[in-house]
């Protein structure tokens, strides 16, 4: 197991006049969000969240509105100060940083993409993409060179001298993404970055992000309220409810083993055939019995939707499941697949 890139430990955030005073109620007496609001007039934003975010992965944080997900992500670059808890980035304590160190962290090591784009309306696309570099204090030539690359990369070549107000939402968010990527920070915080976009454009943007991620391998923290988006993008998914972590795991784990009714409710409408992969079904081969070589071989990463036809045509309706490195993970049967799809 690799060291986490970002580690959030027992994080609390309470909004109100005297958060420190009411903290013990939440921490020690397990007081919930509604009760805290009613009895103490404080809003519980984040409730005892611990999360290890591994490097070079997309960590999705999911929850309905008001679940504290946008509050949580703003703790990572300390746009919001926590009431209690610890945050480290590359093992460094973010909460111990002074203003200068914090600025340095935000300039060089993490950048952010916002739900409502938050572009600078008085600057051209080029100047917007170069904003982070300008803040870093780079020279004009260097900025032009680097921004050109990222503007092309997100497909906005030719729009360099337009203003954000002249672009559509999807294009504006491409600018936002390019601005986030241009600083070469290895952590990218994305706060509901695609939520304001139309479904089709959202799908496009997800594709762009996945394509870029394949190449750049950044550590991405992606906030969303959309389960399909979470399942599509997330290497790991954390689900928040009322500020508290309900479940964390990859898409398979969450779909196959939902932690409670809240999550069961969440995943009820998704297309399971597109989420569950063969690897999750594989039963180890009996030791000693050689694998039946005539069975078709499928990769463990194959989603059931793509595997069903092969499975139904295979002898005994059984297929061999192969790991990435070529070794066998085991076998999977059509019956298993149907059971998994039924939930």
């Amino acid at each position: 197991m690799t060291e986490p890139k970002i580690r959030i430990a027992n994080l609390y955030k309470i909004f109100g006049k005297t958060p420190a005073k009411v903290l013990p109620h939440v921490r020690d007496d397990a007081m919930g969000k509604d009760e805290l609001l009613e009895t103490h007039n404080h809003v519980l934003g984040v409730n005892d969240v611990s999360l290890d975010i591994r490097p070079r992965q997309i960590q999705v944080v999911m929850g309905l509105s008001g679940s504290g997900k946008s509050t949580l992500i703003r703790h990572i670059n300390r746009l919001i100060e926590p009431t209690d808890g610890a945050i480290t980035v590359d093992g460094e304590d973010v909460l111990a940083m002074n203003a200068l160190q914090l600025r340095d962290l935000r300039r060089h090591r993490m950048s952010m993409v916002f739900q409502k784009f938050a572009l600078l309306p008085h600057r051209t696309i080029r100047e917007n993409v170069g904003y982070g570099l300008e803040v870093q204090g780079l020279g004009a030539d260097e900025i032009v060179k680097r921004t050109r690359h990222w503007i092309e990369r997100v497909g906005l070549a030719g729009y360099e001298d337009r203003y954000p107000g002249h672009l559509s939402g999807g294009m504006q968010q491409r600018v936002g993404l390019a601005r986030g990527l241009a600083t070469d920070a290895d952590i990218l915080l994305m706060d509901e970055a695609f939520s304001a976009l139309d479904p089709l454009i959202r799908y496009d943007m997800q594709s762009i992000l996945l394509e870029l991620q394949n190449e750049l391998h950044k550590t991405i923290v992606f906030i969303t309220h959309d389960l399909d988006e979470a399942l599509r993008l997330g290497d790991n998914i954390a689900i928040l409810r009322d500020g508290a972590m309900v479940q964390t795991g990859d898409a398979q784990q969450i779909v196959l083993n939902p932690a409670d009714d809240y999550i069961r409710d969440f995943i009820k409408d998704i297309n399971r055939a597109r989420v569950i992969r063969l690897g999750a079904l594989a039963r180890p081969l009996d030791a000693g019995r050689p694998p039946a070589e005539e069975l078709p071989r499928l990769a463990a990463a194959t989603v059931l939707e793509d595997a069903l036809l092969t499975m139904s045509g295979a002898p005994d309706q059984t297929v061999l499941v192969a790991r990435k490195d070529g070794t066998l993970a085991g076998t999977a049967t059509l019956t298993q697949a149907i059971e998994a799809l039924h939930g």
Partner: peptide, 8 residues
């Protein structure tokens, strides 16, 4: 906030 997030 965006300016803050980029360390301005």
């Amino acid at each position: 906030e965006a300016a803050d997030a980029f360390g301005a």
